[in-house]
């Protein structure tokens, strides 16, 4: 048996199981084996992990939390070492997610209500202090490369992009397509922490900075303004045959699960697929930790206690 056959079989099995679970959920009982929820290294994700864990526990399920790298987690879900992932960001993890799905073993478990945006932007004070007049319109960038220049940018302005594994060469291509390549360079950060550290020190110094960021995120609280690039249209990106001179679309925040999950825990899977949080709710979760300095577990407990009306419907 070759690999693709196995994959097809797994996929077919997964689809069949989804239907089966819809049909059988009324009477099937969830397995008592724990549902394994991954925790990554950012607050909203960890709090949401405990929130979802709390929801599952309220339904009588056993839950286990496992730390995992946010990129490597999809392979783990595929192989069944982790059951679900509840924050699949389109632009950051979309590739890893689809890679794992193509190999078989991972299923798409629906999308959160929160509309997401993953885009280059500047902190609020850059706008407030009018460091670059005309922002957030992207054309304003043409005249203020000096505001955004750094030690190693060779006199040009710098875009601090996330790790290359997130969107490949999307931003360098965009810089070029917008005719900004003489004024701006793209620097790939090693991870989210590097971006936050740069944002923190730039804020202290009050200097200009352009970074990749997303919403909902904890930076929403302090204010972060996304740059308005030419609107996204289908096919505007280079991979889709366009010239790349366009901004990011409104993205999705998905949930993923191992293909056996619907069969082993039909009730929990149904709740998980119904589960959907809004930007405000995710922001609340993150703020409990980032602003109120609560521990992640306590934050989750508090959120669950305060928002019964939000999550109870998922379980029914």
């Amino acid at each position: 048996m070759n690999f693709s056959k196995l994959r097809n079989k797994m996929m077919a099995g997964a689809i069949a199981l989804v239907f089966a679970s819809i049909g059988t959920q009324a009477w099937a009982k969830d397995s008592s084996k724990p549902i394994v929820i991954p925790t990554h290294n950012w607050s909203s994700q960890v709090v949401m992990a405990y929130v979802i864990g709390g929801i599952f526990e309220s339904m009588g399920n056993n839950v286990e939390y496992k730390p995992a790298d946010s990129q490597a987690v999809y392979e783990a879900i595929r192989l069944g070492d982790i059951t679900i992932s509840h924050e699949v960001w389109q632009s950051t993890f979309g590739k890893s997610f689809y890679n794992a799905m193509a190999k078989g073993g991972v299923i798409d478990a629906g999308t959160h209500a929160a509309p997401t945006l993953e885009e280059m932007g500047v902190p609020q004070y850059v706008i407030d202090d009018n460091l670059c007049p005309g922002l957030p319109n992207w054309e304003a960038l043409k005249n203020c490369k000096d505001v955004f220049s750094t030690a190693d940018s060779g006199g040009k302005g710098r875009w601090l992009e996330g790790p290359q594994s997130w969107h490949g060469d999307l931003m360098p291509v965009r810089v070029k397509a917008l005719g900004l390549e003489d004024d701006y360079v793209v620097k790939f950060a090693g991870g989210a922490d590097a971006i936050w550290a740069e944002l923190a020190s730039a804020k202290k110094e009050g200097c200009g900075i352009i970074t990749f960021n997303w919403t909902p995120n904890f930076t929403d609280a302090e204010g972060f303004v996304f740059i308005k690039f030419p609107g996204y249209t289908d096919g505007c990106r280079v991979v889709d045959g366009g010239d790349g001179a366009c901004g990011s679309p409104n993205g999705w925040l998905k949930k993923a699960a191992n293909y056996k999950f619907p069969k082993t825990h039909p009730a929990a899977y149904t709740a998980f697929s119904k589960l959907s949080f809004t930007t405000a709710q995710i922001g609340q979760m993150a703020a409990l930790v980032d602003v109120d300095k609560m521990s992640h577990q306590d934050a989750a407990k508090k959120w669950l206690a305060d928002n019964k009306d939000v999550w109870m419907p998922f379980t029914q």
């Binding site: 925790t39 290294n41 950012w42 607050s43 960890v46 939390y65 496992k66 730390p67 995992a68 790298d69 490597a72 783990a76 070492d81 989210a192 922490d193 936050w196 550290a197 923190a200 930790v289 980032d290 992640h296």
Partner: peptide
Amino acid sequence: ASFIGAKGLGFNLLLALNQL
């Protein structure tokens, strides 16, 4: 080790760093 699922100080450390 916490990148691949080891619980404990290492994971909490990464989490703390991400919150700066």
